[in-house]
Amino acid sequence: MRQILAAFLTAAVALAPARAWAERQVKPFFGGAFAGRTTFFDLDNAAGDAHLALGGSALVLGELVGVEADLGRVSAFFRSGDRHLVVAGSVTTLTGNLVLAMPRRLTQYSLRPYLVGGGGLVHARVKDSLEVLRVSSTLATIDLGAGATGFLSDRFGLDWQLRYFRSIGGDQRSQSFGPEQLSFWRATMALAFRY
């Protein structure tokens, strides 16, 4: 795992856009997490449901390649509206990613599609009614996705993205059925600020 992260960081530094070519973007987003699967105790059987996702990302993007940091939170990932065994259950992700975008010159006045992928950490937290099957675990994760950004002005635009998160390397502990695993899809819409 450390080797993967080291390789990723090396690649990110090597491929990071030169300052003169780069544009910076900040993208606060909202959307939904869905189709989740987990081996953590999921007492409300809610991981597979759709849940509100909030977060933000920061991006430095050159003509083709960029680097991105993404922070997301699904505050009710383990909660279901019609069940009552989970008092609180959230998933938080923090990832660093490489972005491969369509050349800017080709998409200056239209949507600019991109692919994004990288790795980081995912933290799952569950508090149940009896407080006997609590979960608090941080796992390594990979994320892969694709999206498109369209700027309405020099500074402001909109971004749509679909991204898949999947934990890797979870151990068997006393808060899951088998090795700890978590995965889900996230679809978001973001405001994009460029400067």
Binding site: F41, L43, D44, R83, L85, L133, F177
Partner: peptide, 15 residues
Amino acid sequence: TFFGDYLESLRRQAG
């Protein structure tokens, strides 16, 4: 009641 609810939930996830 609580125990029964936990049991059903665990049963489903445990397969």
